[in-house]
Design a protein around this nucleic acid. Sequence first.
DNA 1: TAGATTGTTAATCGATTAACAATC
DNA 2: TAGATTGTTAATCGATTAACAATC
Lengths: 220, 220
Amino acid sequence: MSMSQTSISKRTLLRLTQYLNYLKRLDDGREFISSAAIAEALGLNQVQVRKDLACVSSGGRPKVGYPITLLIKDLKSFLGYQDVQSAIVVGAGRLGKALLGYEGFSNYNFDVIAAFDQDQMLCDQTASGKQILPMHKMKEICDKHQVQIGIITVPSASAQQVCDRLVEIGIEAIWNFASTHLTVPQHVFIQNENMAASLGVLSQHLARTRNNASTKESLE
Amino acid sequence: MSMSQTSISKRTLLRLTQYLNYLKRLDDGREFISSAAIAEALGLNQVQVRKDLACVSSGGRPKVGYPITLLIKDLKSFLGYQDVQSAIVVGAGRLGKALLGYEGFSNYNFDVIAAFDQDQMLCDQTASGKQILPMHKMKEICDKHQVQIGIITVPSASAQQVCDRLVEIGIEAIWNFASTHLTVPQHVFIQNENMAASLGVLSQHLARTRNNASTKESLE
DNA sequence: TAGATTGTTAATCGATTAACAATC
DNA sequence: TAGATTGTTAATCGATTAACAATC
């Protein structure tokens, strides 16, 4: 019984999700799709698409392409979307509330069951039908609902502290929206959603374009 | 006058923003910091930190390290945080509103001036003191305020259409929160904040860990 | 059979890291 | 001077792409 678990890079994983989203939205009655068509639609390389899909499905047939329904099924299965995964949000600010109310999660079989906040004023209210609870209830709720994912939406300054607490109560996957680096034990998996960094990328691009433009001008 | 414009990868840019955030938060009165210390704090490689910083600043001194204040200044300048950049949000749903109210933008000299939405019910209200306006006012406002950045927070289905409109009115940098691939002319810069994809990464990790665990069990 | 398309092996490219030279 | 630390050149690693074989 080989435990081959081909290790897949985060980058590949991101593309797999892209494929899935694209295929789900594709509703033109065709039964098959070619790697070339997918690549074209998503601005990727054909070979890369084929290589990625080879990790996931073996439905591809020469001259025909990939059967769409099967491919969707295989992608979902590979990405683990069959099992419902329970999550909590820590930090019930604007972003936290936005995530509480995000209906798209159901597409991924994600169930955000509650939010937690330090601020007593926010606690024991509901947002989008979900409760906001005080921090000390966190362990109890997580144990009871077998929560697997902690979503951190607190300010950077308290993010590490919240993270430590999540690890302490046994959460093994963390989705971090605070723009700070978090230190965790090896067995804990972190996915950073570093919006500040994205902003930096945009900002730098604009700065550079502007500089080029003005340099050009001054040379004329 | 050399126009050397060393091209910098998005990945490096992400790290540069990390450095800046880390240094700004660092408030322990030290005057200098070493590449080793930064690398340690952010879980990166020393050499990588030095190489990145070499693109941005020349304040580093052997045996001493980098003067923190200068480094912050150089990073800000490189990332273009001196100039105020105006942005609009398109899509005034929960996420759009969260972004409208996000105070952190001011750290990056970002000024989100207004939101736009198709839905008449949402229009002409304010959120976090910012107006929500109908789509047909977009061009006027963008021209008037020299808006450079469009932030897309509409559902995937209408994202491409919104994107096209932004390009049409002359926006050259787009921050896309819809989980779909957007096609734009070459001169337009897109930064994707693909949360669905992040979710996929988390989900797959959990699925895999679970499989391993259960396989292990069944072998015992 | 010929042509389209998948899947794989080999080559290329870019980014990270190691080794080391320069310098305070 | 010796030691710490920066900056750079060379080696490694991983991911992408090109070439091609397999197959329907």
